[in-house]
Write a protein that binds this DNA or RNA. Structure first.
Lengths: 214, 214, 214, 214
DNA sequence: TATGAATGAGTATTCATTCAT
DNA sequence: CATGAATGAATACTCATTCAT
């Protein structure tokens, strides 16, 4: 489950004390509190309990820390999503599982959620970072797209849908739900919103009784 | 082109030469391109064609420029929304009008859209700014809430809805649609997505045929 | 005599108070005392009586200061050499005038002499700097070469000379004389060594009496 | 603290594997390429194939490496000079031998030549280093002085010479010849310049035919 | 001895802000 | 009002040196 991609680190027991993760976690904490640009490298170092210079043994520069957060931690999370989706048969179940997993993941690591929400929208800090972010969200959208297409095959989802829009529709709503939770200080149960949200995805807000069956 | 609502400014002749708007527009342009923190005051000044020091005759500091963008320009826009909504009878029409207006507004001023998308998610630059942003989005959510409640009264919207979630559901989706358009470089017609999007809001992605009528 | 090449500076009266020269002189002083690498930009600023940031209004970076010293100040000096040489008829007089001028110039600005001696030998700080230094010394060697060739025509200098070696022979000796003077703290009259040195150039150290006239 | 005078080390087997020389040679190589201040201790360590910390088992600090290069390697070389001079009878031969030896020595170790040329001119890195450099060049000048004085006794050198100037005259010329060779990338035969150079020392560039015999 | 991860003091450079003109 | 030269506090990053292993 844990990150096998860490450079020059094989021993699983050492991993927890590894400075790399210490710094990553510290950075998430401070980025979440103050934002990337408002955070100094010295603050990350202090939070991690290491010297300023130590950070540069594990990261190329300040931006690289953010890049690693996105590439390493995000991948960890999105792998979970894939697993969760794979274990469901029905496409509506897949969607429900995906949304619940996403809400749970962010609920478990609020700091990471904050960093994602805040920094991924920022304009290009660098090409590498932009690309990383784009790649992640593209993967996510692809996953949603696959679920919807499967749902159309199964007949439980409408066939007259512009897929690109559906993806944004789903992604945007769940992100806003997370965002609101983040801005509220994470004080309520985020995961419990999965089912009502999926209900909205599926049925919308319109009242079918009021509509003449077309 | 020039903003008629400047407080403490009555003389229309002076207004055109007013540096205030020049700087606001320049700031939006540069913030949109580079983000708030990556932008220097000198860049804004150059873009506006004024001296660095001149900016401090109109704005308290760099952050105040962003604050003014949110408070002044945003209010301008959201006033339009209110008007648009007020001219519709039916609540679904109100929602449709709101979404279309929002997409049109951002399509007309892509720079502003970018700044909104990017900077409003950033954690506290200052209390004043955070408050400003919160106030705007609260107003917007209130507007949506009113529309939905009216729709429930009219019977065209489901009554079994958690209103807080519906607001995020609508807001998140439209923002993501805008965001995608921004990231794509604003190269397609954004406003045309209003109707399909509202259709998704109303009907969701589920296929009612496949559901046993409950 | 004064630098007409200063950017955006036409008024000759303002020139003396110009920060550019203030910083150049300060840098020469501090570089001379401590060497380029041992000198901090803050020290130059303090010596010049300006703020640290002011330096970057006139110079691209620390290295650019050294580059300007070489390109601007050195050219000033070498122009003098050309003048001095041009005013002499006889080639031995030209050589004598050149050497005396060089010794006088460095005597008048010991700091500059020190910087030249110390930093011009250093390996490539940058391509621009290396090129600048090479260009200067090449000009100087060309000047010497012309004098020697003229001397050969006039018959007062030997014709069986490898010109490249002669240049180094002359240049090296005078530089070493300057260098010794610098290391001795500049406490004796440098210019007075011109005539004895040229005597050595012309006659060498050998005793012609002891030689069988060939 | 360790090993200041390696030459006295008798055990030949230890010497070859001795890290001390490995590091000295590595340092010369890297100093030659980049200059003292531009070189990091880590680079020397990598070039020597040892760990960074190992260097501090053999040298007090970075500067001590340079000090050792000057004191240890330079002495090695200047001992050769003494030998070479001692084996000549005639003082002109001594001078010739000295110059040829110097050129040969530097030709054989271009790196060392570069380091000498570049770093010895630098202003005080430390008192110990300055003193070391001064001592070496003083020894060299003393040697030259002795040769010249002997030449005066023998009658083959002029007696009307200011000895201090003669020393600089000889030293400067040969150093410039070396310097030029270094800057040219060491691509031609340096040692072959010894005889023409000594010819210049002895006879100068003047044409005795043109001079009225005094 | 040998290692190399960790340290943290030191520095070049940027940039929001001021103020004399 | 307008300017833009000057300021100097703030900060990312480097690298000589140490020390636990």
């Amino acid at each position: 489950m844990q990150s096998p991609q860490i450079p020059r680190c094989i021993d699983r027991n050492r991993m927890k004390s590894d400075k790399y993760h210490l710094i990553i976690e510290a950075a998430i904490t401070v980025f979440a509190k103050q934002g990337y640009y408002q955070t100094t490298v010295a603050q990350i170092a202090r939070e991690a309990g290491v010297a300023d210079g130590t950070i540069y043994l594990y990261f190329k520069n300040k931006e690289d820390i953010l890049l690693q957060i996105f590439s390493f931690r995000a991948k960890q999370i999105f792998d979970q999503f894939y697993d969760a989706v794979a274990h469901c048969d029905h496409s509506e179940e897949k969607l429900r599982s995906l949304i619940r997993n996403q809400l749970e993941a962010f609920q478990q690591d609020k700091g990471l959620a904050v960093v994602f929400q805040a920094e991924s929208r920022q304009v290009r800090k660098s090409d590498a970072l932009t690309e990383q972010i784009n790649q992640i969200s593209k993967q996510y959208r692809t996953l949603i797209g696959e679920i919807v297409e499967k749902g159309q095959e199964e007949g439980c989802m409408r066939k007259d849908l512009y897929l690109g829009l559906v993806k944004r529709f789903i992604l945007g709503a769940v992100e806003e739900v997370i965002n609101t939770w983040v801005l509220a200080g994470g004080r309520y149960d985020l995961a419990s919103m999965a089912d009502p949200l999926v209900d909205l995805y599926m049925r919308g807000i319109g009242n079918p009784e009021a509509r003449p069956p077309q």
